[in-house]
Design a protein around this nucleic acid. Structure first.
Lengths: 231, 231
DNA sequence: GGAATAGTGTCTCTAAGACAGTATCTA
DNA sequence: TAGATACTGTCTTAGAGACACTATTCC
C-alpha cells in the first residue's frame, strides 16, 4: 500500500460522467443524444458527457449538472446517479470509468435550437458510441421501476398539472393503462400534490380538470408508497 | 475536447473500489471491517477496498472481487454494485472516486482467523474511515429494500436450507416478523427453491423440516415478485 | 402421551379494479 | 340539449394476515 500523500500510484484511469437525459414527447420516452465532435466515435451519437474536472466539480453529481448546463442548457433537473460503468474495453483510449446519471425534464425546457442535438425515442435507438445503448436501456428500466411506486414521473411534467394529464404521463412511462380510480387513490396516498383552489384547466368541450401543484417538500424529493401502482 | 489517444488530460483522480461485505450473525446483519494499515485514517476501521488495478482488473466488478479474495478469502459471493462516491473532500489525498459494491455471504464462509478483521453489527458502527459509515447505511437500506420483493436473503444462507430457517433470515434482515402462511406463499411464488425429496432436517424434539436447495437458475440471479412480502 | 416445531386449510380483512353514475364544460 | 371528459360512489375480486388445525419428531 502506497502512502504517497497527494498524487496517484495508478494514474491511468480515465474518469468521466455521462447523463441519460430523458423526457416525454408524444407520449413516448425520448433521450437526448449528441453527435460526438471528437475521437473516438467521432460523428456517432452519444450521451452528453465529459471528463470530471477535479478543479471545478465538487462531486461527480456536480460534474453531471455542469454537463447538462453546458451541453443542453438545463439548469436544475431531477438528477440522480444510475450506475458506474468501467473497464478496459469500453473506451479505446484506455481503462475508463463513467459515472452515469439520469435526469428527467419536461419537454418544454429543452431548447429546440441546438445543432447536433437528437431527441430520440428510447424504443428506436440508433448505433451509439461506447456502451451508451445499454446505459440508456438501464436508465429506462430504472425509471419504469421507480415510477411504479413513486412520484418520479412528475418531473416529466411542467407545472401546474392536472390528474388526467399526470395519469397519461404515468401510462406513457409504464407502457400500460392504469385504472383511473386506483390511480387517483395512489396519487392521494403519495400526498405530493395540492389543489390550487378555484383553478381549473379548461380547453375542451367538457368539464374542466382541477389544477394541482407539487408541494414544496417534493420539489426535489420523491414521494414513495409501499405498494406499487399496478400489479 | 482533447484527442490524446491513450492517456489522461485529467490524471488527478484517485480511483478505488470498496466493498460492504454483509453477513448474518446471531440474527443480526454484520459488516466486515478492516483496521487500516496506512495513511490516511491509519488504524481506523474501514471497508475492504483498494485501488483499481488497470493492468489486472477487467472491470471495477473484478477489482471488487479481487479485494474480497485478497482481504477476506471470499471467492464467489453475491456481489453487486451499490453506488459511486466521489469528490474532493472525502479523501485527504485528493479528488477521489470510490465505486462501491455490496456482497452477501453466509457467515460460515468467513474465516475467523484474520487479525484486524472486525465483524461488526450494522446497528453499532464505530467511527469509520472516509465516508464509509454512510456507505454501509446505504448498503443496508438497499439490502432491506431488495429483500422485500426478491430472493436476495438466500445469499446469506448456506445450503441446503429449510423454510423456517429462511423465514428467520428474512425476518432478521427486514427487522420484523412475517406471517408464516404469507411467507410460504411468497417463496412458492418466487419459485427459486426445490425440495430435496426425502431429505428432512431433524435436530429437535419436533417434526423435521423439509430440506430445499436453490434452483440452478437462481444461483447467481435473483428471483423477483411483483408485490412485496410485507406491506 | 406430552411438548415442540413443521406444515396446511380456511376465514377475514384490506386494497385494487370494474363499472356506472353524477358534474360541468363547449357547441 | 348533445357530446365530451372530469370526478366519485360502490360493488367485485384478489391477495395478505390471523388462526386454528393436523403432522411428525423426541422424550
Amino acid at each position: 500500500m502506497a502512502k504517497s500523500p497527494t498524487t496517484t500510484d495508478h494514474p491511468s484511469v480515465i474518469c468521466t460522467v455521462d447523463v441519460a437525459l430523458l423526457t416525454l414527447k408524444h407520449d413516448a420516452l425520448h433521450v437526448v443524444l449528441l453527435k460526438r465532435q471528437a475521437e473516438p466515435f467521432s460523428g456517432i451519437p452519444a450521451l452528453p458527457g465529459g471528463y470530471v474536472h477535479a478543479q471545478e466539480d465538487k462531486t461527480a453529481w456536480d460534474a453531471a449538472a455542469r454537463v447538462l448546463r453546458d451541453k443542453a442548457s438545463i439548469v436544475s433537473p431531477y438528477l440522480e446517479q444510475l450506475a458506474t460503468y468501467s473497464g478496459a474495453e469500453r473506451d479505446p483510449r484506455g481503462w475508463s470509468v463513467s459515472i452515469v446519471y439520469y435526469a428527467l425534464v419536461p419537454s418544454d425546457v429543452l431548447e429546440p435550437g441546438h445543432e447536433d442535438v437528437m431527441l430520440t425515442p428510447v424504443s428506436r435507438l440508433p448505433k451509439l458510441a461506447f456502451d451508451h445503448k445499454g446505459i440508456i436501456e438501464l436508465a429506462v428500466s430504472r425509471v419504469r421501476a421507480k415510477s411504479q411506486y413513486s412520484s418520479l414521473p412528475v418531473y416529466l411534467c411542467s407545472e401546474p398539472i392536472t390528474l388526467p394529464r399526470l395519469q397519461a404521463v404515468y401510462e406513457a412511462v409504464l407502457g400500460e393503462s392504469i385504472n383511473k380510480v386506483s390511480f387517483r387513490r395512489k396519487m392521494d396516498e403519495l400526498g405530493m400534490l395540492e389543489p390550487v383552489e378555484g383553478e381549473m384547466e379548461a380547453g375542451g368541450a367538457h368539464r374542466p380538470a382541477q389544477v394541482y401543484r407539487l408541494r414544496k417538500e417534493f420539489r426535489r424529493e420523491l414521494s414513495i408508497v409501499a405498494r406499487g401502482i399496478n400489479s
